[in-house]
């Protein structure tokens, strides 16, 4: 698929920063309410994508004695997401998957958590499912069992969550990653600057650095805010700044004039700058941050082991609602 212009990616999955904030707040507030109402935020997922709501756990006498677990705030949720997005990159590297798989999995993960809070669906489960789904969609099939085994996780989790992931993505499964665009631009640059053979090495380095810059960009909100071509240019510009291979601005001006682009050069530079400011602002959570957030998430997810058992007993008569009734990007 090369036609980004008519894609669902372009028409439905590029947002403004305000829209992103709003969606995340809605999900966070919903989970917070769940916590107040039920004392737990975990949603059980069925293979057909429907979601079971928890039974209230504090209709017991110990209600008053036990303080309600504290919900995660939006910032903590963000840390959690970034942490697991990094994990996606690690897992994909460990499996030696192509960049495309990794990028698709991260974009699925980002889109999923525009509809849900990490308190409702555990990011570890969703991370695995997104990787599995990405392999499947990109025709690079790895069995759920193999994937689970490779990272010592129960593959049943993946299969249970597969449908809720597709559904939360609105079944828009083709996504555009910046890696391909980088290769395209690089080839074009080589042609444009009449690269000589002895310069090939320089372009190779430029490409490698640009790839690792994209890896960073993928951890920010940029993939939900900008089209992949701009992400690629931002990475290439950064790579060129570090390496000084060529006159990047000159190149951009020329492609803009050739393409009769709807954007002026100054607009494009502004976009590239904002992509980069997102990278500069990116805070990779420390281990200490994560320990704290993870503890909080655990208590929202599973208030206590014995409560959990009680809950499971009653799970047979849980109320069911399908995922689509309460969420979906376009509802």
């Amino acid at each position: 698929m090369v036609d980004f212009q008519s894609s669902t990616h372009r028409s439905r999955w590029i947002f403004s920063p305000d829209e992103l904030m709003e969606k995340r707040e809605i999900a966070n507030q919903r989970a917070t309410k769940l916590l107040e109402q039920f004392g737990v935020t975990r949603l059980d997922v069925n293979v057909d994508g429907s979601v079971s709501y928890p039974e209230p756990i504090f209709d017991q006498k110990d209600n008053a004695e036990r303080p309600l677990p504290k919900p995660l705030n939006c910032e903590e949720e963000q840390h959690m997401r970034i942490f697991y997005e990094q994990k996606i990159q690690e897992v994909c590297q460990a499996f030696k998957f192509p960049h495309k798989i990794q990028a698709t999995a991260i974009i699925y993960f980002k889109r999923f958590y525009l509809q849900w809070s990490v308190m409702e669906h555990h990011p570890k489960h969703i991370m695995l499912t997104c990787i599995y789904a990405s392999c499947k969609v990109e025709e690079n099939h790895v069995s759920a069992e193999e994937l689970g085994k490779g990272i010592q996780q129960d593959h049943q989790i993946i299969l249970n969550n597969e449908m809720v992931v597709y559904q939360s993505l609105g079944f828009d499964l083709i996504v555009y990653a910046p890696y391909h665009s980088i290769e395209g631009f690089l080839e074009d640059m080589q042609e444009h600057f009449h690269a000589r053979d002895e310069e090939q090495e320089k372009f190779k380095v430029l490409l490698q650095i640009a790839y690792s810059e994209v890896d960073k960009i993928m951890l920010t909100d940029a993939p939900l805010l900008f089209p992949p071509g701009q992400l690629a240019l931002a990475a290439l510009r950064r790579s060129n700044e570090l390496h000084g291979v060529l006159d990047f601005e000159g190149y951009l001006n020329i492609i803009l004039s050739q393409q009769r682009s709807v954007h002026s050069a100054s607009e494009l530079f502004e976009f590239l700058n904002s992509i980069y400011s997102l990278v500069h602002k990116l805070k990779i959570p420390t281990a200490k941050d994560m320990r704290h957030i993870d503890r909080k998430l655990k208590s929202c997810w599973d208030p206590s082991p014995d409560e959990n058992k009680k809950r499971e007993k009653r799970s047979k008569h849980k109320s069911k609602r399908t995922a689509s009734e309460m969420q979906g990007p376009h509802a």
Binding site: E145, E162, F171, L173, I174
Partner: peptide
């Protein structure tokens, strides 16, 4: 049918969905 198979959601169906979502 869902949930019956070792490899989750039917491959053929997934192909059809992902492509037809993009082609009108």
């Amino acid at each position: 049918r869902l949930g019956k198979y070792k490899e989750g959601v039917n491959f053929t169906a997934l192909r059809e969905i992902k492509l037809l979502k993009e082609i009108k």
